[in-house]
């Protein structure tokens, strides 16, 4: 009897915890929607701030939307350019459990755990060192540093579990390591997409990295050396305002950010499902 009760109790507890995950998501969406939806006008997404925007007058946050998209796409592309060769090297070129591969995995694990404010501070230091101002370029580079370990780790997870026999099949057909690498990439397309999605989500939402490096401005950047606004900072600055209308705009910005992340999420899921069905 007691054991049965115990069993029931823990089952109840687990279901409660499981449901609370969805509950948290719903509450977040509810909060930002209820507070932000009213301010989510066409103007907000299509205009840059006009004079007096921050005390509740007209305009929008197109500057931050564009800035965030620039930085996120730029950082994800740069991040891939670095992390794909790393992942291919440790999975195809290096011998199994080689010294360099082990060290690389350990390093990316450590980098993965470093808080983004540290990347922000580090980015700021190199920015000063190279004599750069706060700019699109400096922000993108800093966010790139943030996403590289995410990309390396997530892609490595999928490359590692590709059966050795796939590589052996290519080798025994007389293929080179480069040909094997290409087959591995094809085999891992769904995993690569997941990695890109994760890095995209992290990059677009991170405030600490861009705080000291990208700056903030009301105009849309037209070159890499100009500062740029970003969505997380648009939320941050407006939320600290005492004016309610401005605060609501912060929630509208949060809503936009969440919608972008959701769209990316679902398209990525869709494509990775479709691709894995067709190819693998």
């Amino acid at each position: 009897m007691k054991r049965k009760l115990e069993e029931q109790f823990f089952k109840f507890l687990m279901i409660l915890c499981t449901l609370s995950i969805s509950g948290i998501l719903l509450m977040i969406i509810w909060t930002i929607t209820s507070k932000g939806a009213g301010s989510l006008t066409w103007d907000i997404v299509s205009k840059i701030p006009e004079g007096g925007f921050y005390i509740g007058k007209g305009g929008g946050i197109l500057n931050a939307i564009i800035g965030s998209i620039y930085i996120t796409i730029g950082a994800t592309i740069l991040g891939l350019l670095v992390s794909i060769p790393v992942v291919l090297y440790i999975n195809v070129y290096a011998k199994k459990n080689s010294w360099l591969a082990t060290t690389t995995r350990l390093t990316s694990d450590i980098l993965f755990g470093i808080p983004s404010i540290v990347y922000g501070a580090f980015g700021f230091t190199i920015m000063i060192y190279f004599g750069l101002k706060t700019s699109l370029l400096a922000g993108t580079i800093t966010v790139t540093l943030l996403v590289i370990p995410i990309l390396v780790r997530t892609m490595d997870e999928v490359f590692r579990v590709v059966p050795e026999d796939i590589g052996n099949a290519v080798y025994s057909l007389g293929g080179t390591r480069w040909e094997t690498a290409k087959i591995m990439i094809r085999q891992c397309v769904p995993g690569i997409i997941t990695a890109i999605l994760l890095s995209f989500g992290r990059a677009i939402g991170d405030a600490a990295c861009v705080l000291f490096t990208a700056g903030y401005t009301d105009s849309i950047p037209t070159s890499l050396d100009q500062p740029t606004a970003t969505l997380p900072l648009a939320i941050f600055f407006q939320l600290s305002s005492p004016i309610e209308e401005v605060q609501n705009r912060a929630y509208a910005a949060a809503l936009i950010l969440t919608i972008i992340v959701l769209i990316i999420s679902f398209t990525a899921k869709y494509f990775s499902k479709k691709l894995s069905k067709n190819k693998i």
Partner: peptide
């Protein structure tokens, strides 16, 4: 090595078709 391997076909324990 690639020349040597081309001389030999390999069938493994489980079939591993290439992702294509």
């Amino acid at each position: 090595v690639t020349h040597i391997r081309k001389k030999m076909g390999l069938l493994s324990q489980r079939p591993f078709p290439l992702p294509m």
